[in-house]
Design a protein around this nucleic acid. Structure first.
Length: 724
DNA sequence: AGCTAAAATGTTTTT
DNA sequence: CATTTTAGCT
């Protein structure tokens, strides 16, 4: 196999096929290329079967891309490797083996909303009020336990006489029982239960240990204890484990990621080989210098510095706006300028935000300015109300024990069944130890009122019918039947507002997703569960479409592993970035995580970074004023280019009176006048001839004929053209 | 039970 | 400011 396109370190990583290997890969150091080459090398040179390879990536999209690249290198065999996220891999195992630990194979996955509903219900039953036990916090505590592989028993050790913690552990215990009763698992269970399964049954563990002779884990710095243990168990037999990571890019410690996993790799595997990839192929020297100048303020890191052949590069632009509207306008203007001049296309840009709440202003401004964009993160498609409603039906069909989904389905549309009646049937089911569906059919015996009782029986009978259908007819037909016969469609048709219209559109889209699934799956109960699991693990990051010519708007977290020619980072303000919570926490470690996030954001850029902030900021209906982000101050002034037209102004002296002056275009003074027939030189397209002139002043446009590209329309004030 | 209107509350980051 | 939760009414 030809390895000549790899550098020395990359090649070393590729040909070290036996034993533990740690690849410390800096941002943009060709990590994916190295990983895919290494897998291709195993397949081609060492004749390893693709079935023996497990590759764990951070998103399903990354897994798909990795597979594609491997297929490019070695052909169809690449299709057969196991590649996916921790969650998708564990789910695949659980689907086959979960009965071993007392769940049924048709289990469903609870998302945060389902989790929240369950917790609220438990709090009510326990007479604990939500003020002292905010469900969010309880869920968080439980999540932390699970990430540490602590079951309720194990969690007791952490009470230490703390009343709140004691209650939290009690709640955890009940929550876990209820999940099992509902035959449901939450996100963290997916990992924890797989570990429990492996620990409970050595035969099953051996099966997978034997199978996976070669294991890869990407983004190892962001694995938590449960994931770490899982990999350690799986790799124990063959010990051919290759992990890739960068401590400077660890940005998920808030959800349990443990940096020690990467730092202790050498302790876990004393014979580990370590390869460092420090040459950066992505960014210019200016960007790397800026990124380094920020990250070097962290004390909790191994010092290292990326280098590149791409000397120089453009300075980091920096703009101060009056308010977020103007900040968004600035972004639009900069993008438009470069697109109209022909230097870039929309797809070259990303706008990175610290929080999803910042998306809206940007989005609205993009719409106003006709900038095409895609948004990743924020409100997910599958968490929309109408989608969650139909999913509740499907989940209850797949798993009749799922009372959370059943409760949602039974009350949408309204059937005259209220909380009181619902509680009665639940109690009746528990007391007689019968499935909830049977209890519903026997509503009268549960002493539910006549009207509500009749509705319950009707509902339950329908659900039983749907269940029978689910194994026989394709999903899209099942969906259609459910929407019709449950009265859901009728309910939507009666709502005549705009909302209802958009709900219907979303359901249409869901319908086509389901139809697409049907194309390569036979109707069966298993495939319904399979579909629901796919939906549960779906993130819109997986849908990132780089073929569309659009600007990408996303969080900095979402941008991990991606790259763009030009990156905007908006909201460079204290309290936004770094986030107010990490400032308030006083823990230096939280600030260091923000700083790593800044490092990740900066190193996404290939050619240019454009930072911005605004002087006034709206939060909860009040105007706030934030200081410039400390990270701005950490970038040396000689790397920054201040674009602000009011740069001499003090940040706090601009309260009132300042009107929105139009922003002056940067190269106004340079704009030359041309006539038809003049020869002009364009930065990107070379020499062309002016063949048309339209408009005047700021709107002056030239039509220029280029030999290669044909006739292009250029806005005079932005176009990078000179007389030739 | 279920609607409407008033009141309260809240934002990191995500598999 | 938005969105969600609750109280009060029918």
């Amino acid at each position: 196999m030809d390895l000549s396109n790899l550098n020395k370190e990359q090649r070393e990583a590729v040909i070290t096929t036996k034993g533990p290997l740690l690849i410390l890969a800096g941002a943009g150091s060709g990590k994916t290329k190295t990983l895919t080459s290494r897998i291709a090398y195993l397949l081609e040179e060492e004749k390893v079967s693709p079935y023996e390879i497990l590759a764990i990536t951070f998103t399903n999209k990354a897994a798909g891309e990795m597979k594609e690249r491997i297929i490019d290198l070695v052909g169809f065999a690449g299709e057969k490797i196991w590649a996916g996220t921790f969650h998708s891999m564990c789910l695949r195992i659980l689907r086959m083996e979960i009965e071993e630990i007392g769940y049924k194979p048709n289990f469903v996955i609870y998302d945060e909303t389902d989790q929240q509903s369950l917790l609220k219900q438990i709090l009510k039953e326990q007479n604990l009020d939500e003020k002292s036990f905010p469900p969010r916090l309880v869920a968080n505590t439980i999540s932390n336990f699970k990430n540490e592989l602590l079951d309720p028993k194990g969690a007791k050790r952490y009470i230490n006489g703390d009343f709140i913690m004691e209650k939290n552990v009690e709640l955890y215990e009940i929550y876990q029982e209820k999940l099992k009763q509902n035959n449901a698992v939450d996100f963290d269970d997916i990992i924890m239960l797989t570990v429990q399964l492996f620990k409970a049954n050595s035969e099953i563990l051996s099966k997978y240990q034997n199978r996976f002779r070669y294991i890869f884990v990407d983004e190892y710095q962001d694995t938590n204890h449960a994931q770490y243990t899982l990999i350690k168990l799986l790799a124990a037999k063959h010990r051919n484990i290759c992990v890739v990571g960068d401590d400077d890019q660890s940005i998920y410690r808030w959800r349990g990621a443990d940096i020690q996993n990467i730092l202790n790799f050498e302790k876990d595997y004393p014979d580990a080989k370590i390869v460092k990839l420090e040459q950066n192929y992505r960014s210019t020297q200016a960007i790397l210098d800026a990124a380094y100048s920020v990250i070097k303020f962290n004390s909790e890191r191994k010092d290292k510095r990326l280098w590149t052949d791409k000397k120089g590069g453009e300075l980091i632009d920096y703009f101060t706006a009056l308010d977020e509207e103007e900040e968004a306008f600035f972004v639009s203007r900069e993008i438009k300028k470069r697109v109209v001049s022909g230097e870039n296309t929309f797809a070259d840009f990303a706008v990175l935000c610290r929080t999803t709440a910042q998306f809206r202003v940007i989005e609205e401004n993009f719409i106003k300015n006709g900038i095409k964009y895609q948004i990743f993160g924020g409100m997910k498609f599958y968490s929309r109300k109408e989608i969650k409603d139909v999913l509740a039906y499907l989940k209850a069909i797949a798993n009749p024990d799922d009372r959370i989904s059943l409760a949602r389905a039974i009350s949408t549309p309204k059937r005259g069944i209220g909380e009181a009646s619902w509680n009665k049937v639940n109690q009746y089911a528990d007391e007689n130890n019968i499935p909830i569906t049977l209890a519903l059919l026997d509503a009268a015996a549960a002493s539910v009122g006549a009207k509500a009782g009749k509705a319950m029986v009707e509902f339950a009978e329908k659900m039983v019918e749907f269940q029978a259908l689910s194994a026989e007819i394709p999903l899209h037909l099942l969906l259609e039947t459910v929407l019709e016969q449950s009265g859901y469609m009728q309910m939507l048709n009666e709502e005549k507002d705009v909302e209802a219209m958009s709900k219907k559109e979303n359901l249409e889209e869901f319908f086509s997703i389901v139809t697409a699934f049907d194309r390569d799956h036979e109707p069966s109960a298993e495939n319904l569960s399979h579909f629901l699991a796919e939906v549960a693990l779906y993130t819109d990051l997986d849908n990132l479409n780089d073929k569309e010519n659009t600007v990408t708007i996303m969080t900095m977290h979402g941008a991990k592993g991606l790259e763009f020619p030009i990156v905007f980072i908006v909201g460079m303000e204290e309290n936004i970035f770094p986030h107010a919570r990490s400032i308030a926490s006083m823990a230096e470690s939280e600030m260091e995580e923000e700083r790593r996030l800044c490092y990740v954001a900066l190193t996404r850029a290939k050619e240019k970074v454009i930072l911005s902030r605004s002087l006034a900021h709206m939060l909860y209906g009040r105007t706030n004023r934030n200081m410039p982000s400390r990270f701005l101050g950490e970038i040396p002034a000689n790397l920054l280019n201040d674009l602000s037209y009011r740069k001499k102004q003090n940040s706090f002296s601009t309260s009132n009176g300042l009107s929105h002056k139009p922003i002056q275009p940067q190269n106004m003074d340079k704009a030359e006048k041309f006539n038809i027939g003049d020869k002009v030189a364009h930065n990107k397209w070379g020499i062309g001839v002016v063949v048309g002139i339209k408009g005047a002043g700021d709107d002056l446009e030239y039509k220029v004929a280029f030999p290669e590209q044909g006739i292009k329309t250029l806005i005079a004030k932005y176009a990078p053209i000179k007389r030739a």
